[in-house]
């Protein structure tokens, strides 16, 4: 039985809305090889459509008007999935945020990433958005970035001329900018699973959980014999890119994991950030709140050790 299709309406339906997608040519590569060839051919003229939750919004707001949109529809399965490789977790670039949230091993082995994913948008956004999209969009407020930074993540980029692996710390170069060449795509994200005696966590401060972060932070600490052996701290929405807070890390290593240590580390992190006033918050507030925020996120990470 076929559904009855009414003849098209007289009005141009693409102009029926308040936010209208600009015209573009859609390309649907049938294989990874074809995807790379198309990206090599069109470069900056082409945008990759993964989940659409950033790209299509930017296009509707005329922030981006790519001539070509490359759909991942036919290569999605090749670019999706979560697997374990030794002490690393490998996540395909087109893996949905929701699938990361529902994956047992992420919750166990990269809890900071789990914390971040569950506060990203509503369930609809997480059913659409992808981890590669979140990183490629390169927002200073990208929620997956601080957890991935503390889990020593790297990004595998592919192009027709080969592959390269870029540490996430070197990946972002500014708001909306990365080291990616126009012919490259993000293939997968690799992160270190939590080791023994380690815990990680992520928290963000936002108007509502749905909203973008005013400031966010992730921490990973390893404790041995009552002393912090290893510490990684990263902060989002407080600099042109998500950043590692090395002063905070230095203030942690070798100390006992106490609330006082955590608050001192939080204060030290003020040296690592360069926040600005923007629509969501002020530089003043971000500088103040980073100390208690890091205290809280470190406590949360500590509470997860050995769980």
């Amino acid at each position: 039985m076929t559904f009855k299709v009414s003849p098209g309406p007289k009005l141009d339906i693409n102009k029926a809305n308040t936010h209208i997608l600009p015209p573009f040519t859609l390309i649907e590569p049938g294989s990874l090889k074809e995807l790379l060839e198309v990206k090599a051919k069109y470069g900056e003229k082409a945008a990759i459509l993964a989940g659409g939750t950033d790209l299509l919004v930017k296009m509707k707001l005329r922030i981006l008007e790519p001539e070509y949109v490359i759909s991942l529809k036919k290569v999605r399965s090749e670019l999706s999935g979560i697997r374990r490789e030794g002490d690393e977790i490998v996540i395909g670039a087109a893996t949905l945020l929701r699938d990361i949230e529902l994956n047992d091993s992420i919750m166990r082995l990269a809890p900071a990433l789990f914390d971040a994913v569950i506060v990203m948008g509503g369930v609809q956004i997480r059913n659409m958005g992808t981890i590669g999209g979140n990183l490629g969009n390169a927002s200073p407020a990208a929620d997956t970035a601080p957890p991935l930074l503390v889990h020593s993540a790297s990004v595998k980029l592919l192009s027709t001329s080969g592959e390269r692996i870029v540490p996430l710390e070197e990946f972002f170069t500014g708001p909306g900018r990365t080291v990616m060449r126009p012919d490259e795509i993000i293939y997968e994200v690799r992160l270190k699973a939590l080791g023994k005696g380690c815990g990680s966590a992520f928290m963000k401060i936002a108007r509502t959980a749905f909203d973008l972060a005013k400031i966010s932070a992730a921490a990973m600490i390893c404790v041995e014999d009552g002393v912090i052996k290893e510490a990684k701290v990263a902060v989002g929405s407080a600099a042109p890119t998500p950043v590692r807070a090395r002063s905070a890390e230095d203030a942690l290593v070798g100390k006992a994991p106490t609330p006082e240590t955590f608050l001192e580390a939080g204060k030290a992190a003020r040296n690592d950030i360069s926040p600005i006033d923007d629509v969501r918050s002020t530089a003043w507030y971000r500088r103040r709140v980073i100390a208690p925020l890091l205290h809280d996120v470190l406590q949360k990470a500590l509470g997860r050790i050995g769980v």
Binding site: F3, V5, S6, G8, P9, L11, I13, N14, A16, N17, L21, P22, P23, F24, T25, L26, L56, V69
Partner: peptide
């Protein structure tokens, strides 16, 4: 159309 969103297809065509 290439730039047609599902919502509009559902509402205006289906």
């Amino acid at each position: 159309e290439d730039n047609e969103i599902l919502l509009n297809t559902l509402r205006y065509k289906l």
